[in-house]
Amino acid sequence: MIDTSWLKISKSGLYIVPAKAHIDPVRSVNTAIITHGHADHARAGHKHVIATPQTLEIMAVRYGANFAEQKTAVKYNQKIQLAGVNLTLIPAGHVLGSAQIAMEYADTKIIAAGDYKRKSDPTCAPFQVEKCDVFITEATFGLPVFSHPTPEAEIQKLLEVQQLFPERSVIIGAYSLGKAQRIIALLRAAGYEDTIFIHGAMKKLCELYVSFGIELGSLQTTPIGRIDNQQISLANKFILAPPSAMGTKWAQRLCDPLVVSASGWMQVRQRAKQGGVELPLVISDHADWNDILRTIKEVEASEVWVTHGREDAIIHACTQMGLAAKALSLIGYEDESE
């Protein structure tokens, strides 16, 4: 008989009762176990933070070196104990340092997968399948319309438009953590060796990736307000910027920019259109429909809990597979952006 009474939902998020610790809490707490460095999961203001060394470094870049009174770095697959609860952080394949949290207590093993993906990504450790009794999954792309193509094929489109419009600069909207570095690494893997320009907000995170041994090649920051044709011609170059910078003066300074957006949402045409995107790339750091269902099967859990996203469809599919499934309806995690 599995016993899940020791893992509860509080206002701050998932709460491991005996360990008095929260997973990705949305408010300040005493002990926080953080799955990965994206801002809606890794918030500032906790007293004690437990995470992978990479995630702790990412948080230090974002919130300053003193973002918590106590920091516990736990390497992948290293076992630790917290008030009788066995904890292991397992690679989740989402971004650098991202981890699934495996918890064992009262003869029951629960895995909170956090955000995860199964498609290839040269910038982080691949998702590791680990059997458990209860699997807690996200459902950002939890609808059968989401079937992400291989990222390598999508990157080819970037190289094609660059050849097609040699006079235009190609500006790619991508999250500063994870997506940006993944696109750079994919471009490098596709044989692109020229300097890639990045928005200032991405500089430190790119440097951090390099310090963890991820090759990104020649990068150059594009200074705000100083782009004009006399200084540096950015025609026929790739420029990466966070989605928030796309509509700003910074982007307007570029000459005839071709706006690219890389996200799982780009599969829905009218959504892509809405953002003023000229070239949508379906490159996602989340699992698509088939990968979520495949993962649920592979971990052989008898119960599935769904944190955020399109939970209705995943729960329906689990029920069809004969698995117990429920929505946790956690709030505070952004489900519309990646």
């Binding site: 609808l143 059968p144 319309v145 829905v268 399109r310 209705d312 469809a313 329906h316 599919a317 069809q320």
Partner: peptide
């Protein structure tokens, strides 16, 4: 599956 189709269409 009609249920999954309707949920997808709604989205």
């Amino acid at each position: 599956d009609p249920v999954l189709f309707d949920l997808s269409y709604d989205f």
